[in-house]
Design a protein around this nucleic acid. Structure first.
Lengths: 186, 186, 186, 186
DNA sequence: GATGAATGAGACTTCATTCAT
DNA sequence: TATGAATGAAGTCTCATTCAT
């Protein structure tokens, strides 16, 4: 594992456990077993480190989102696939999930939101846009729908995190259905 | 206005604008025109200050939630009232809304979530429980439904905050309907 | 018990337990159940409070020192009486003993040492001076002898404090003899 | 001279002159010409700094104590050597002497006393124990005898410090004799 | 006499960051 | 690339003290 990777993995874990604020550079240095100088060799400063991690996570999420989503499937089924991809990514990477949650509630996040929406999530945006135009989805702002889906997935992930058990498929279907019902056209 | 209130109002505003981390005690001292000692006279430390404000806001929200909700109304209409109460509380108190959002994403928040749910939000919990039992709502965890409603309101509030304009009644109804559709029995 | 006395007793106890430094005015206020204003009504400031207590303790010690010391006794027996008076005063008032020990090691103490020696301890000084002149004691500085006796008593008191049991009379005699042997003429 | 040493030397001097309490970190920073961060790089906090210095001084004292003490000398002469070693260490290092005096009267000191006695002072303890067993010294607690010797040396050092002049050899002998007489068997 | 809310200087400590090696 | 000693600004909090009631 490269030094750069040690730094990133350690930071994700620390931020997920303690929050952005409590994760000091000193702590990252100690836990990642890397010197201060090395961190500043790879990253301009703390903000840059955090932002870089966030960007890479967004990219990773963006890639995973579309996996196995077959355009031949019905719109609803494609939606279910998207939803599950996101859900299982968070379930398998709880630290990454929490990192993103912590980051999102930071003043740092505000500026970026829009810029990033247009890079890795173009396919998701297009999918929603297409759904609205075709009448599968309600005519509500694309941004609203996107945020809502994220919120639904997050609520489920967060709720389960506490109990630690994986929900039965039946329950999962119910949660996705709940999400689908909030945006599907009627 | 008492000193204690000056401190609280100033802190809410600063946190909502700059975040928990960037709101230093020094800044609170300066902006609230109160001495350091006075803050520590009323609050044990910064954590206590933040937590106390959060608790008081939760209590305030709890009280507002049930205003004008008539038990003679249909279940759905009662739900719409609840939703609007929460929504307009946030719209009228954007600083309080943002304070809560900032706080919620903090390690501090984790411990409390459940304790507090059971104090000021009993009526909300009862309402959801009743809805499930009567078949108005899906048989999903009460906690999930509660979190979902908050999430829906938050997404709408957050989205509008950016534009600053109040949405037309028609749009608002659409958002509430979206929220309702995600939990109502079918 | 007067407020002034409450303050003094509380302060003696706190200082003896936590030291001069750790005994803040806030702590005295809390423990003595007296308001800040009241303390500053009776004492000019913290230094004055501490110094006043110390002075009163010195006076108390000065009075106790000569109790039951009969001039008809042999010089050695008079010495034993003095020694025991001091010893039992400290044993019965461990907080006062510790207060004095804490105070003595303070920059505050330096200035006073000489001034005070000449007030409440004149009889002790005279006694030592007399002993030297009569050849009972070695021809060493009076100040040295005085300090040595205090040191001997303190060492015994401190050592016993740890074990909390009162030493048998036989042991006590041995300690006094040790003290006596260090100054008696040979 | 290393930074760590600059910090230690400066702290010893400041504490000896102003006491533990009045020696603020800010003052140490200023006088040692070292940054705040550097102090906290070498020491965990102020307590740790003070304690570390104290421990190192104890160790230094422990080493000096036995210098030039020849086992072929008579027990009494060995005692005189020990006494002089301690005395001249304090005379040559008045700041260290005063630092130790200040520290010893601190709540911090209480816990350690025993632990430390058993590390650097084993030879001294053995010496006293041996003296008791061989009948050179009175059958009194070893701890008492050790404390007494320290107390005697301290009283002399303290008394002289005020006058600043070195005492004539004749006087020094008299002080050591006084100390010896308080513990030697008769 | 007595209260305790209010003060603000200054205490200790942590922080992100730099730079000589 | 990598290290970690060194920096000093800025953070949180405690302190002795005052004063209107």
């Amino acid at each position: 594992m490269t030094k750069r990777n040690q730094i990133i993995q350690t930071t994700i874990q620390l931020v997920s456990e303690m929050g952005l604020y409590a994760t000091s550079m000193a702590l990252i240095i100690k836990e990642s077993k890397v010197s201060a100088g090395t961190i500043y060799h790879y990253f301009k400063n703390k903000d840059d480190l955090i932002r870089t991690i966030y960007d890479e996570l967004r990219e990773e999420m963006g890639k995973i989102l579309t996996q196995g989503v077959d355009q031949d499937l019905s719109f609803k089924n494609q939606f279910f696939m998207f939803w599950k991809n996101l859900f299982f990514f968070f379930r398998k990477n709880p630290h990454k999930f929490e990192f993103i949650e912590h980051y999102a509630s930071t003043p740092l996040a505000k500026e970026e939101v829009k810029v990033i929406n247009q890079s890795h999530y173009q396919s998701a945006l297009d999918f929603i846009q297409y759904g609205i135009e075709m009448g599968y989805l309600r005519n509500l702002p694309v941004e609203y729908i996107i945020q809502l889906i994220f919120a639904h997935v997050s609520v489920v992930v967060r709720m389960i995190s506490v109990n630690e058990e994986e929900p039965p498929e039946r329950m999962l279907q119910a949660y996705i259905q709940s999400s689908w019902d909030s945006i599907r056209n009627t």
